[in-house]
């Protein structure tokens, strides 16, 4: 293909459809699942802090992840706008 279309470049890395929403959550909150009111209530009853000491409690850690993704330019290759959290390609 390269010989026939030397200027053609892949515009995105193929991602399984199931992964796409997961990556939005990963890059938004740092983890794949959010903490809900129900989660907090159950954690309290289990003798834990309602918000775990993960990026859920430290949102700057999620900001670090976005910084790293931008530094590697992976947002460009997978076609995800990290400001709007929308995919540029269907």
């Amino acid at each position: 293909m390269n010989e026939l279309f030397p200027w053609r470049r892949p515009v995105k890395v193929p991602l399984p459809p199931g992964v796409k929403p997961q990556l939005i959550r990963h890059f938004s909150i740092g983890l794949l699942y959010p903490v809900t009111e129900e989660t907090m209530e159950c954690r309290r009853k289990a003798g834990l802090d309602p918000v775990p000491p993960t990026a859920h409690r430290f949102p700057d850690a999620a900001e670090d992840i976005r910084t790293l993704i931008r530094a590697m330019k992976v947002d460009k290759t997978i076609g995800l706008d990290l400001d709007t959290m929308e995919y540029l390609f269907s």
Binding site: H26, G30, L31, T54, A55, R57, F58, A61, A62
Partner: peptide, 10 residues
């Protein structure tokens, strides 16, 4: 203790 500030493994 916990690993604090942890994110997806990935």
């Amino acid at each position: 203790t916990y690993v604090t500030r942890s994110t997806c493994c990935p």
